[in-house]
Design a protein around this nucleic acid. Structure first.
Lengths: 164, 164
DNA sequence: CTACGGCCTCAAGTTCACTTGAGGTAAAGG
DNA sequence: CCTTTACCTCAAGTGAACTTGAGGCCGTAG
């Protein structure tokens, strides 16, 4: 029951521990990705649990997941204590998306190393474009995640001599 | 030797085939990511090989690789015909990065499903933050890829009651 | 008592990856 | 001949994810 308030972290401490800038934490909080309470002096105090949230946010971002998606997932969790069941169901939602991304990466890696790396220069049966991720692609600005319809993506092979 | 010029694609055809907007192709070309030659009427014509480049660009982007990195990799290739050896060495440069990303993703997935999913709420031995990708992090604006130093990332466990 | 570090807010700036718009050319169809 | 369609250029706008800067509060070490 005794909540050790002293154990909560200041924004500076959080920033150092999480490896992000203070301004980033301000930003995340403004976006509703993390939470804090305030001291009498209006200073932020973070529950240590928020560290994990930041870790997840950063990791997900590192592989191209937009903040809006991350937020959606984090929002799906209840704010207090989280049961194993709650985590699991949240994790399941992500699992599919992450698997897709892992597959995309492995496809890319394989393409680079094998299909393309082989030098055959043919893409007749190229699986590269089977990545219809489709997740963003609304509005202007940068479209992360493939987004497009990609339809047939039929590309034929052939030899050319780089017509100038 | 007979270069079938008619087989080259217009920007509209490329756009449709590659599943991107015409403006995107203009943009990629301005950035030096793809190439074209011009007809008498100053219209772009793309060698079919450029389709593969676009495919690679899009796939890499889908997993968070910035255009600058993609360009660096594509620039490393000679512009004409590419030998198997050339592709392989280019692929090798990327392989490590892609493996890192795959590992990061799998870590994230595992964290979500197991370490965190277990409900223990402890991150004592959490491997999540061992992703010191470090690749961007120069200048202002959004820092893709983890970027930060991440140092120890020591997070301890404990029970709290969400102090309001 | 004042200098300092650390915190606060809010507005504006920056980078990336594009998109949109204005204004114009060029061949093809009715 | 006129209109459509597809293309061209160049400048400016947009959204995401932050960072930077200006101006100010608070507690403590010198």
């Amino acid at each position: 029951m005794s909540s050790r308030i002293a154990k909560d972290l200041s924004v500076g401490q959080m920033a150092e521990r999480a490896g992000v800038a203070v301004s980033t934490l301000h930003f995340y909080e403004a976006e509703g990705l993390i939470q804090s309470w305030r001291t009498a002096a209006n200073h932020r105090r973070y529950d240590r649990r928020e560290l994990r949230r930041v870790a997840i946010i950063r990791t997900a971002q590192a592989v191209g997941v937009p903040l809006s998606d991350i937020k959606a997932m984090l929002d799906a969790l209840p704010s207090g204590r989280i049961t194993a069941e709650e985590w699991r169901s949240a994790a399941d939602v992500w699992a599919a998306q992450l698997d897709e991304k892992i597959a995309t990466l492995q496809r890319l890696r394989t393409q680079m190393g094998a299909c393309i790396g082989c030098g055959c220069l043919s893409m007749e049966h190229c699986p590269l474009y089977n990545a219809d991720d489709r997740m963003g692609a609304r509005g202007a600005g940068p479209r992360r995640w493939l987004g497009g319809a990609q339809e047939e993506a039929e590309m034929d092979a052939g030899a050319y001599d780089a017509t100038p």
